[in-house]
Each structure stands twice: as structure tokens, then as C-alpha cells.
Design a protein around this nucleic acid. Structure first.
Lengths: 160, 160
DNA sequence: TATTGTTATACTCTATAACTATA
DNA sequence: TATAGTTATAGAGTATAACAATA
């Protein structure tokens, strides 16, 4: 499948055929396994994945308005309402009207929320699935994925 | 599991603190970006992500019963019904009763399905997001994620 | 008029349980 | 009785559109 058969999916640089595609599919495979593990552990904390990720995005030391949380989660404002409802019902977050702009509601993480958020962070960082790598390999892997996520997509990102 | 702090989340080998957790969170970040890209391109093909992934799992040269597809997708049999409904309506797959066991329905990929599956495969292998890596880096990355997914979790997998 | 948060609504994805037709 | 596929149903997640309060 040469360079650029049909759509815009073909490799635009000269590379051993299949290399990049293999890498992508393997990354997705590993990520799915990691995600599954995380979801199981999150359920054990009594949270749903979306609620846990919302809590994880909140910085206890720098309360945000709901609008900013939506932006960080890359989802619509309307979803945040339900997520924060659950966090508030669980006593992990409190809504406080911003006196400076009474339209905004600031999301304040409670003490219980702080503790839960720490546990969520540990789940999100759980690396048991990477136990087969040596420390050097792990370090290399971290640097490579970091490089990718840090701007590996110079011009193609305009696609979105 | 553990000689460490609280739950079962701590590292069970001696490692620079945060290394593995950083790697995990970065992998998830990259995977989310890849997934988003794929979902956009899949939508452009007129498919939903789940339907596209179902088609992708099917081997045109070796038709499967629906039960096996459910197993490959790691989801319940009941979901496969709706997915195959859509594939059949789109003319990409045909259900054929297995004469040897009339309970089973074999999923046969049509010619149109074959072509669509190829396009889905290209989307799933789209590596534009990895364009910032050199060929050597890409090769290293592929080998490392391969090693992880190939059994990087010897004893801990019993957890599931 | 524009923006924040909310509500109403709908669609996708996935799971469980009950049903049918085969075996 | 056990299994393959289906149906009914429910919940989670996310999106769009319309609304109230506020700016």
C-alpha cells in the first residue's frame, strides 16, 4: 500500500511499510488494557470513570468554574452538570457561586474529595501492566510517548 | 501485593518514583488523541466507532459465527446483534445460517465490506500523530509497546 | 446581546436477563 | 439440559438545543 493510496491516511514520509501502523495499533491495544484496569479500580472506589476523571482534573488548590472543567475534559458544559451533581452528592466537591460573577459556579474540592482524588491519581498512574519492562525501557518509553504528545503532529493537527 | 503504601497501586519493584506513572499517563494521553483522530475519520466513512471495529475484527477470508466476534470484541453477545444489524443494513456483511449447526449464524463480509474494512484498517493504522518520531524512535516505541502487550504482566493479571 | 449553568432530549455503547430455536 | 442469537431494558457517556439568571 504505497504512499498515499486513497484518503489522507498514507504515510507522508519514507518509512518501512507497516512500522508506524503497527506501533499505533499496539499503543491502542496497551491503552485499552490500561483503561480496563483503571476502570475496574475506579469502580472499586465507588465512582464511575467519567466522574473519577472529572475529580482528577480538579486542582484542590485552584478551584475552577464548571466551564473550565468542561474545557479540560474536552466535553460539553451540559455534561459537567451531571458529573458535578454526583461529585457533590458524594461530598467530594462543593459548588460555590462566584461573588465577582454570579453566573459562575466555582468547584471546590472538599477534604474528602482531596483524599479521593489522590486515590484516583494512584489508579491513573498504576503501572502494573508495565512491570515487564526494565527501568531503562520504561524510561525510554516514557520519553518517546512524551515526545509524541508534546507536538508530534506539526501540520496534520489542522485536520481537527 | 504489596509491600507499599495503601491500596495495591504502589510500585512493587524498586524504581525511580513517578517514572512508571508518568509513562502510563502519557500513554493514555497519546491513545486518547489517536482515538479521537480515528473516530473522526471513521465518522467520515459513515460508520460509528463500534461498528467499524466490529468490521475490522472480521476476517473476510475466514467467516466467523457471531459468538466469536463477541469474544474478539470482548463484549456481550447481545451487543453483536445490533452491530451486525447495522453492518448488514449497510451491505457490508451478510448473516448466513450454518448448515452444520443451525443455531449459529456465520458473518460473511461482502465485497463492499471488504473494501470498507480496508479503509477502516487504514484509519486504525493512521500514524500522522507519530510523525514527530524518527524511524528509529518509532521502531523502538513499537518494540516496547509490543513487549508490554505481549505479557508484561506475569502475575498481576490474576487480578482481573 | 453574550455567557454560565441547567434542563430536556437523543444517540451510542455496553451489560444483564429472559426468550427462541436449535442441539 | 445447554448453547447461539435475539429482544427488552437499563445505565453510562456525550452531544445539541432551548432556557433562566446574570453580565
Amino acid at each position: 500500500m504505497a504512499q498515499s493510496t486513497a484518503s489522507s491516511t498514507g504515510p507522508d514520509v519514507d518509512r518501512p511499510s507497516g512500522l508506524a501502523g503497527d506501533a499505533v495499533r499496539r499503543i491502542m491495544h496497551v491503552a485499552a488494557a490500561l483503561r480496563h484496569h483503571q476502570d475496574v479500580e475506579i469502580a472499586a472506589l465507588g465512582l464511575t470513570p467519567a466522574v473519577a476523571r472529572a475529580l482528577h482534573e480538579l486542582d484542590p488548590d485552584h478551584p475552577l468554574p464548571a466551564r473550565d472543567l468542561a474545557e479540560q475534559l474536552r466535553c460539553d458544559r451540559s455534561n459537567v452538570t451531571a458529573l458535578v451533581d454526583k461529585l457533590e452528592q458524594a461530598g467530594l466537591v462543593q459548588r460555590k457561586v462566584d461573588p465577582a460573577d454570579r453566573r459562575q459556579k466555582t468547584l471546590v474540592v472538599t477534604d474528602a474529595g482531596r483524599r479521593m482524588r489522590q486515590r484516583v491519581h494512584e489508579v491513573m498512574s498504576d503501572s502494573r501492566l508495565l512491570a515487564g519492562l526494565t527501568t531503562d525501557e520504561l524510561s525510554t518509553l516514557r520519553d518517546l510517548v512524551w515526545k509524541v504528545s508534546d507536538g508530534g503532529c506539526p501540520e496534520a493537527c489542522g485536520t481537527d
